[in-house]
Simulated scan of single mutants.
Amino acid sequence: MNRHLSSLDFMQSFSTKLELALQNLTMAQYPPDARREMRKFSSSEVAALLDVSEAYIRQIVLKDKGPSPETTSNGRRMYTLEQILELRLMLGEKGRKKWMNPRRVDGEECQIIAVTNFKGGSSKTSTTIHLGHYLALKGYRVLAVDLDPQASLTSLHGTLPDFDPREDETLYAAIRFSDPKPTKSLVHKTHIAGFDVICAGLDLTEFETAVALEMRKNGGTSFLLRVSQALEQVADDYDVILMDSAPSLNFLTLSSLTAATGVVIPVPAHMLDVDSTGKFLELASSYMQILSEMGTSAQWDFAKFLVTKFEANDHPQANMTALMRQVFGEDLLLNMVAKSTAVADALTWKQSLYEVQRSRFSAPKTYDRAMESINAANAEIEKLLWAAWGRE
């Protein structure tokens, strides 16, 4: 039988066509000469972020003791994120509110959190980006490391200056065994103050081959320390480092789990997702057992499961959540991230929910519910950071 369709032609043709179409879409959203900016925040939003009253914010402005906000035609005061950070640091120096400046102090180590699960579609990237932006808005210094060759987290930041995934610019350049680059050279500033990123690309897959060759030549488990050693080079510059893992349990994921001080495992409350998570835990356990027998193990401050894409009115999901609550107990976060068209819309615009003005949504209450859900889950994770630092 003569088959007429060439697999090579098919893959090459549509790979090229799709890449071009997506490039054109990205160029339309973020032209090369466009400067992507974080939205501005109203005085009520600033008060909520700083956990003070709006009247107190107005008082600071009237006394000319803080940054000067932009005043709109209808008299609203709007602040940039940089101005909010300036306010936070200024109020933190006065010491009127403990941890107004939440950045870590002497004796507190940089928290490195792996967001992982090998089930695709479990909201790993959405969890990472929303947690990262939440923490940056709260005043932390955050680095997000994209470890997924599909580079979803990278693409959410539009066109980053001086980044080409084909030009040796991913974390692989810092963790390869031959001629590694300094990790700092791979860090990119984003349009969000306090939020930096190390981008991803297809060359991350080369780590798997490199590890196999290294183990054949020298044996041992030194590859497990590659991510940890790379992140140590920049840890002093950040309070929190977030790693968005690939949907697989490979050498790179194992190395990231070894580097982590904490782990968050997003799990949609569906039978197939929960079953897949069970397989992930089983496989990870077998790997960890082997590594433990070889004298290598990962120690974490915390490891938590997070229910994502939750629909409260869906009875099968409620039942599955109850099952997870029974099995995981306190290791399942109390707050669940609701499934929302607002989140889907924001990600389509290559933005997190924190970047989009509420007025842009046709159904603002949908935005409110989604934001409430995400804030609650992120606040719970923030408490885990404080517990790891030994804060009250």
Rank of each mutant, 00 (worst) to 15 (best):
M27L: 14
D148F: 02
S286N: 10
S222I: 13
V105E: 15
A342N: 03
A235R: 12
A55G: 11
M243D: 01
S155N: 14
S292N: 15
E70F: 14
L204E: 00
S359P: 04
Q299P: 07
M324T: 02
G95N: 00
F251L: 01
S228V: 00
V227E: 02
T154S: 12
E82L: 09
M243H: 05
M320C: 07
E330P: 04
L249D: 00
A269I: 07
N24T: 11
I60Y: 05
P165M: 10
K339S: 13
W349F: 15
S222C: 04
S185K: 06
R104I: 09
G219E: 04
T26R: 11
R77P: 03
T71M: 14
H130M: 05
A136H: 01
V52S: 04
N2M: 09
D106H: 10
K339L: 09
L153Y: 05
V263G: 08
P67T: 07
D162G: 03
T209D: 07
D239V: 07
P268E: 11
F302N: 02
L254N: 06
I381K: 00
A151I: 02
L242Q: 03
S352A: 13
S255Y: 12
V61K: 06
P149I: 02
D301W: 06
A387E: 15
M288S: 15
L91Q: 07
R358T: 04
M90K: 03
S73M: 13
T183H: 00
D168A: 12
A388Q: 08
Q299S: 14
Q317H: 13
V227D: 02
T116G: 10
S362W: 10
Y172R: 09
A269E: 03
A144I: 12
E208C: 04
V46G: 03
L281F: 12
I241K: 01
S286M: 08
Q233H: 06
L62V: 13
D9G: 05
C110W: 07
K350N: 15
P364F: 12
L385M: 08
L147E: 00
S42E: 14
V211Y: 05
G95T: 00
F328N: 03
P165H: 07
H133V: 07
A269S: 15
K383T: 04
